[in-house]
Computed example of a mutant assay.
Amino acid sequence: MTTAPGTNAPDRAPHGIGLLDDEGRQLAAACLTGAALGSWPAFTLGVYGVIFFEQHLALWAAATSVFLALGLSKGPHVWRRPQALALLLPSLWVLLAWILPVGGTSGIYQVLFWFGVVITVVGLPALAAVMVRLLIPGAERLRGRRALGAVAVVSLMMLVSFGLGTQHPRILTCEDFTVSGNFAPENCSPGTGSTVR
């Protein structure tokens, strides 16, 4: 029997599925954060074939704030590391979108579109991994099989979210989209939505 941290009393917490060790909590946090951040852009990509600008800007704001926080806490020299510089990819997308006129149809706009898709779909889970490592003590030790497990879980959840987006007429109605503040896609199912009372 172990003692509870900070006391002489024995730790009487029940063992079982509800109790995770530190590595299990780190893995669960990485999976939860990555899937929570990555599932919505994957779903909208499945439904609409695009990722909404709000998702691009949310990624940009989060990545840039983490980049700046790293510089404040570790000093500007940390910005030379490739992991830190990767946090600037969303800023590069914003800069390119700023430079190029809005509404073009040439190949450069397709490149910009897919660049935005890739950095958002890959960047949100990667940013989640950085955030988990920064905010959860000991999470930087999440490596090897557990790190691959987290990547696999997040990738699976994003793939399933994309699949649900492509199959939205089977689970959502036009009204579900409208009530949630989203544009109803052309191929949505008519009828009263499952989220509407």
Rank of each mutant, 00 (worst) to 15 (best):
A4G: 06
G6S: 04
G6C: 05
T7Y: 03
P10A: 05
R12G: 04
A13F: 07
A13V: 12
H15D: 13
I17P: 00
I17S: 11
G18Y: 12
G18A: 10
L19M: 13
D21W: 00
G24K: 07
A28D: 07
A28E: 01
A30W: 09
C31G: 03
C31T: 05
L32K: 02
G34W: 03
S39K: 00
W40H: 09
P41I: 06
A42I: 04
T44Q: 11
V47E: 14
G49N: 06
G49L: 01
I51G: 09
I51C: 08
I51Q: 10
I51L: 05
I51D: 06
Q55P: 02
Q55L: 10
Q55I: 01
L57S: 02
W60C: 13
W60N: 13
W60T: 14
A61P: 00
V66Y: 08
L68H: 06
A69L: 13
G71E: 09
G71F: 12
S73C: 06
K74F: 04
K74Y: 07
P76G: 06
H77K: 15
H77P: 02
V78P: 00
V78K: 11
V78W: 07
Q83D: 06
A84I: 01
A84W: 03
A84E: 12
A84D: 07
L85Y: 05
L85C: 05
L85W: 14
A86E: 09
L89Q: 06
L92K: 01
W93S: 04
V94C: 11
L96G: 08
A97L: 10
W98P: 04
P101K: 05
T105L: 12
T105A: 15
Y109F: 06
Y109W: 11
V111C: 04
F113D: 14
G116A: 08
V118D: 05
I119P: 00
I119G: 01
I119Q: 09
V121L: 15
V122R: 04
V122P: 01
A128Q: 07
A129R: 09
M131L: 15
R133S: 15
G138Q: 02
R141C: 01
L142W: 08
G144F: 08
R145L: 15
G149F: 07
V151I: 10
V151N: 02
V153S: 02
V154T: 14
V154Y: 06
L156D: 03
M157W: 09
L159Y: 05
F162K: 04
G163M: 05
P169V: 14
P169G: 10
R170C: 01
I171L: 11
T173R: 13
T173C: 11
C174L: 02
E175Y: 01
D176H: 03
F177V: 13
F177Y: 12
T178H: 06
V179R: 11
G181E: 11
G181F: 14
N182V: 01
A184G: 08
E186R: 14
N187Y: 02
S189C: 04
S189W: 09
P190Q: 06
S194I: 13
S194Y: 12
V196H: 15
V196S: 09
V196C: 09
